[in-house]
């Protein structure tokens, strides 16, 4: 135990306060019966968690947490709260998470302490605990790539290591991951009505004017945050994924506030935006070998230092947009699963 506490207890005071605040926020996020209160509680929890990460000197994680936990989840919860501000029904969570509940599992009322629920919880706990145990047991070897990483950073055209890994050394993985997101968007478009954009043409519930005001206030901030995350990516932590997530939350909020264009105006540009990143990424990867002398002497996804930065930057911008759009499409579909098709 002694190892966990610093010598000077006073230094730990802010941390302890932070921890307590975190617990309070968690309580706020779980205990109240009003959805708005819950949403607020969760938002503050997100903010506090980001602070915790910052306190732990993990700026990138902090930013990601702020973007994802605060941004997307917050936006989702707000939207939920607006649509049905009453207390949650016991099975509402399931209604959200499943696209088509089977009639068999649906009952009018269910005891809270359902054996299945208990079993599920226990299983989750065991699984989580087991994995933690394993992780601690075997955690000793460090990645063997620290040295070559530093040696080869020169050639990547970016300065931050994580970005370097993401966009140069393991650009292939990044590409495939963004392809996963893109294809998720494509899937949503294929499955949803009107190419997944049906929700945009539906009438929106009224929102309180205060909220609309809040959104107008938040939107520029979120946009800025997203752009910062994107451009910081080349020199600092941050990058397309985080940025895309933040931008997606921006879109969600805008939708909440009726600030998005109609379906007809959205449709033409949404597909190119969705795929642009991946296409350009692959084409950029092909440029290297195609421009090499002799032809194809370079491997796939290798870019020359002279235009590496430009390539990486444009790929990242487009990827960000694609990711934001993809996430937003998914959100649109999940918004009202009953009405997608």
């Amino acid at each position: 135990m002694s190892g966990l506490l610093p010598e000077d207890v006073s230094l730990a005071v802010p941390d302890i306060a932070l921890g307590l605040a975190l617990l309070t926020a968690a309580g706020c996020a779980l205990i109240p019966r009003s959805r708005l209160a819950l949403a607020a509680g969760f938002l503050s929890l997100g903010a506090l968690t980001a602070l915790v990460w910052l306190r732990l000197d993990s700026v990138d994680v902090g930013l990601a947490e702020a973007g994802l936990g605060g941004g997307i989840l917050g936006a989702l919860l707000v939207w939920l709260a607006i649509r049905s501000p009453h207390s949650p029904a016991p099975d509402s969570a399931e209604t959200i998470s499943t696209t088509q509940p089977t009639s068999g599992t649906r009952r009018t009322s269910r005891p809270i302490l359902n054996p299945r629920t208990l079993l599920g919880c226990a299983a989750g706990a065991v699984l989580g605990g087991g994995l933690c145990l394993v992780w601690f047991q075997v955690l000793h070897a460090l990645p063997a790539w620290s040295e070559p990483l530093e040696e080869q950073m020169e050639t990547t055209g970016v300065t931050h290591e994580i970005t370097g890994v993401l966009l140069a050394f393991r650009a292939y993985d990044t590409l495939l991951e963004s392809a996963v997101l893109m294809l998720a968007g494509v899937a949503v478009m294929a499955l949803g009505r009107d190419g997944g954009l049906h929700q945009l043409s539906l009438p929106q519930p009224e929102v309180p004017s205060a909220l609309r005001w809040l959104v107008r206030l938040c939107a520029p901030v979120l946009l800025l945050a997203g752009l910062w995350l994107l451009f910081a990516g080349s020199s600092d932590s941050g990058g397309a994924f985080q940025s895309g997530a933040v931008l997606c939350s921006l879109l969600i909020l805008l939708r909440t506030a009726h600030a998005l264009p109609s379906r007809e105006r959205t449709e033409p540009w949404i597909r190119p935006l969705l795929i642009g990143g991946v296409v350009v990424f692959i084409l950029a990867g092909l440029v290297g070998p195609l421009l090499a002398d002799p032809l194809l002497s370079e491997a796939w996804l290798s870019w020359q230092p002279q235009w590496a930065t430009a390539a990486v930057l444009s790929v990242e911008i487009l990827l960000t947009i694609g990711i934001a759009v993809g996430l937003f499409l998914m959100y649109l579909t999940l918004e009202n699963p009953e009405g997608v098709q």
């Binding site: 292939y172 590409l175 495939l176 392809a179 893109m182 294809l183 494509v186 478009m189 597909r271 190119p272 969705l274 795929i275 991946v278 296409v279 692959i282 084409l283 990867g285 092909l286 070998p289 194809l296 491997a299 796939w300 996804l301």
Partner: peptide, 21 residues
């Protein structure tokens, strides 16, 4: 062959993306 090795992954992906349009 080496070109094909990556091409066999990336070119279909490209086609997949293009097909969306």
């Amino acid at each position: 062959a080496e070109f094909s090795l990556a091409g066999i992954v990336l070119l279909p992906l490209l086609a997949s993306a293009v097909a969306v349009l």
